[in-house]
Design a protein around this nucleic acid. Structure first.
Lengths: 201, 201
DNA sequence: GTCTATATAAGGATAGAC
DNA sequence: GTCTATCCTTATATAGAC
């Protein structure tokens, strides 16, 4: 029994450290991007050595994949927690707002991959692809409901709406507005939502 | 006199090769992005050796900067050639359409820098910054005219409109639509324009 | 000015001691 | 399981011959 408790404690500590690693990786991905995030940096930030890091994640690709899976799961969870009273369009808007706030708070956008390298890497990560597909199906259903209710432009193909929607979560204008405009985070979120659904006109 | 002609010929050949290098770099930046574009690849594609490549451009950053300057100049030139009859909004729409077609044809988006690394690099390139600023001023004037004429949402700050506009030229949804939707290039351009100015609603 | 050959540096990944 | 020390590959950049 004592042995089992001891193992359990170890496992708990292991799990805690794993979360710390994922947190650090997420922060660094958000600030520096995939290519400039080094395993040395992550290990240093967490306060462990590189070989220890590799005991948790067998490669950099694996680590990044897990961080993104956690993010997608957060989005799915946020979708599931929404009050039943919201319309499909309100759900889409609410999730985008959530994603923008996560990002402005130092987190990651989903669809972080404007780079073909990262995109290909993620495509080979079957667990990641499965999660993204699950989220994609839920969002596709919302888009169809919103279109049927006249809340989204029915002349636009589903794919166009969905990919444009994803693209807004990783829109570089957020970074530029933060750098070069006087808007605070609240105003940035509000502007992005308005531009997304109502356009520039 | 003969010597001067000879030098002139050499210079011409040098200039031609320089254009070939920039063409190759542009194609590779568009397809692989900054980090995966190697100087070896560029030299190989042009058919010269790496040291020769470094006779033309003193660094990878320099080469990429020149390629992007050429691109921005193309945009400025396209703006200048527009018929005088176009309204400010039509000019903005026309330039975005041009940028999207350039990109779909294997070229580059301006504002290629969703990566902080590339963005910082370009910020240090004063010649590039100067060109971008020139284009930015022209577009800002167009945005203000369009707003005054009621052709753009006056409730949106200029910065929001401008950065969102730039972001549409490098929108990752273009890549995803090409990969995963049935739309041809014409339909993609039309959809992107509609989404940009009228939103998803 | 062009090449072959090489210096140099960064970073992903691991061997082996404890 | 954790560390120190190291390997190995890749890619930028250059030295030096012709």
């Amino acid at each position: 029994m004592g042995i089992f408790n001891k193992l359990s404690f170890k496992d708990q500590a292991f799990k805690l450290r794993e979360d710390a690693i994922l947190d650090a990786a997420t922060r660094m991905l958000a600030s520096k991007g995939f290519d400039l995030m080094t395993m040395d940096d992550v290990a240093l930030e967490v306060g462990i050595s590189k070989p220890s890091l590799y005991k948790h994640f067998k490669s950099k690709e694996d680590l990044v994949g897990e961080a993104l899976i956690r993010l997608i799961d957060g989005a799915i969870e946020h979708l599931g927690q929404m009050p039943a009273t919201l319309t499909p369009l309100q759900r889409l808007s609410d999730l985008l707002e959530w994603a923008l706030r996560v990002r402005l708070g130092g987190g990651l956008p989903f669809l972080p991959s404007t780079s073909a390298h990262v995109r290909d890497m993620l495509t080979r990560n079957l667990r990641y692809v499965a999660r993204v597909l699950k989220l994609h199906q839920q969002l596709k259903a919302l888009v169809r409901q919103a279109k049927a209710a006249g809340q989204l432009d029915a002349a636009l193909p589903d794919d166009v709406i969905l990919f444009s929607y994803y693209a807004r979560t990783c829109d570089p204008s957020v970074d530029y507005l933060r750098l070069y405009s006087q808007l605070d985070d609240e105003a940035i979120v509000a502007s992005m939502l308005r531009v997304c659904f109502d356009g520039l006109r």
